[in-house]
């Protein structure tokens, strides 16, 4: 197992875990969600093929009330 950080929290992850699998496991895979890894946007079309390296810093954001 490697360790990744998702929305500020450390989390164990399989070495071959993809973005799509992460969102499915965390229940956050839905429309209106966007993902960045290490400060760079990862387009939705790339989620299934993007593997999360160890120490990856993942941000999962969605629209909320505000402004």
């Amino acid at each position: 197992m490697s360790t990744i950080t998702v929305n500020g929290r450390a989390r164990p992850a399989r070495p071959d875990l993809t973005v799509a699998e992460l969102l499915r496991e965390d229940g956050t895979e839905r429309t209106g969600v966007a993902v960045a890894i290490d400060g760079a946007l990862v387009h939705r079309e790339q989620w299934a093929t993007t593997v999360l390296r160890t120490d990856a810093v993942v941000e999962v954001l969605s629209p909320m009330q505000g402004g």
């Binding site: 929305n7 500020g8 965390d26 956050t28 209106g32 969600v33 966007a34 941000e59 999962v60 954001l61 969605s62 629209p63 909320m64 009330q65 505000g66 402004g67």
Partner: peptide, 17 residues
């Protein structure tokens, strides 16, 4: 109407769209 972008997981204000 404006919205903000926040980390998923918190429930406050989500689902606004």
């Amino acid at each position: 109407v404006t919205v903000s972008m926040r980390r998923t997981g918190g429930s406050v204000g989500s689902g606004v769209t």
